[in-house]
Structure formats: structure tokens, C-alpha cells
């Protein structure tokens, strides 16, 4: 068993949920690998910390109605916000479709073909003046990886 694999089973192991067929190899690796033994100690601390912090969760019965009154109060803003988003979305969709169309034309002329939707989306983005913060996908730099490059 590789260290990565062993690490991926640690939570299950500590929760007593590790499948018996993996248990033997898991414990054998631990007996031989100091780093994984230390990592297991850390995971134990992590689960303990998480339990400790999560025990402060309070069920707030007014939470839902508070959100609704906020939405009610911001009704007009929210409506226009949704309209802008939908228009932006439609524009992107149209631009993507057009990008593919133009891409095909260019392809026929022997120029670079836009092969994927994401290429077309990039082009579409260039034509969009209204860019809303995209919070439904991640664009996070992994500092460790970029250091290695």
C-alpha cells in the first residue's frame, strides 16, 4: 500500500469503519512507515478538533425566516441582479454558439479550429463587458504547486 492510499484510509480507520480486507495492509504499512504513523496522529487530532468546534453549532429556529425577510427587503435589488445574470448567461451561451460557428468556418479555411467549448467561452468572455463574480467554480492557486513549477 502506498503512503497516499494509507492516508486516504485514516479517517475510516479512526472511526472504526475500515473494511477488514484493507485492515491488514494498512496496519502493516503503519508499522513500517514513521511518517504515516505521525500523519495518523495528526488526523486523530484533526477529528478531535473538528468535533470540538462543531459542538458549538446551535440549531437556530429563526434562521430561515430571517433569510426570507432579508430577501423580501432586498427584493428589487435581487430581481435586477437575477435579470443581469440571466442576460449574461444568455449572452455567453449565444457567444459560445457563435464561437463554435466561427470556429468551424475558420477550421474550414485551414486556420486554428476552436475545438472545445472552453475555448469558445474564453472568446465569449472577451466580448462580455459585464462580468459577474463567478462563485460557482474554483479558481484557486495552489501555492505549493506553483512553487514547484
Amino acid at each position: 500500500m502506498r503512503c497516499e492510499k494509507v492516508n486516504s484510509l485514516m479517517e475510516e480507520y479512526l472511526r472504526g469503519e475500515l473494511e477488514p480486507k484493507n485492515l491488514g495492509e494498512f496496519e502493516k504499512h503503519l508499522a513500517e512507515c514513521t511518517q504515516c504513523r505521525s500523519n495518523l496522529e495528526v488526523v486523530k487530532m484533526l477529528l478531535d478538533l473538528a468535533n470540538n468546534e462543531l459542538s458549538k453549532y446551535n440549531e437556530n429556529p429563526y434562521f430561515g425566516s430571517r433569510i426570507l425577510s432579508k430577501i423580501e427587503a432586498q427584493k428589487e435589488n435581487i430581481r435586477s441582479d437575477i435579470r443581469i445574470r440571466l442576460v449574461t448567461y444568455a449572452t455567453v451561451a449565444a457567444a459560445v454558439a457563435m464561437g463554435i460557428f466561427i470556429g468551424n468556418k475558420l477550421g474550414n479555411m485551414g486556420t486554428k479550429v476552436i475545438t472545445s467549448t472552453s475555448d469558445a467561452e474564453l472568446i465569449a468572455d472577451d466580448y462580455l463587458t459585464q462580468t459577474t463574480e463567478n462563485i460557482y467554480s474554483f479558481n484557486i492557486e495552489d501555492s505549493e504547486n506553483s512553487n514547484k513549477k
Binding site: 503512503c3 497516499e4 492516508n7 486516504s8 505521525s38 500523519n39 496522529e41 488526523v43 484533526l46
Partner: peptide
């Protein structure tokens, strides 16, 4: 996270190892 399964495995392995360097 919209990444592959092996990317998650690697991220978590590195996260735990980084914490270990501080804690142990």
C-alpha cells in the same frame, strides 16, 4: 472542487503531511 479523484487524494496527503511537519 471540480478536480479528479487522484487530485483530491494528493491534496489531502499533502495537507496532512504539512500539518504533521508543524504538529509532530
Amino acid at each position: 472542487m471540480e478536480v479528479s479523484l487522484s487530485a483530491v487524494e494528493s491534496l489531502l496527503f499533502r495537507a496532512k503531511s504539512n500539518l504533521r511537519k508543524v504538529m509532530v
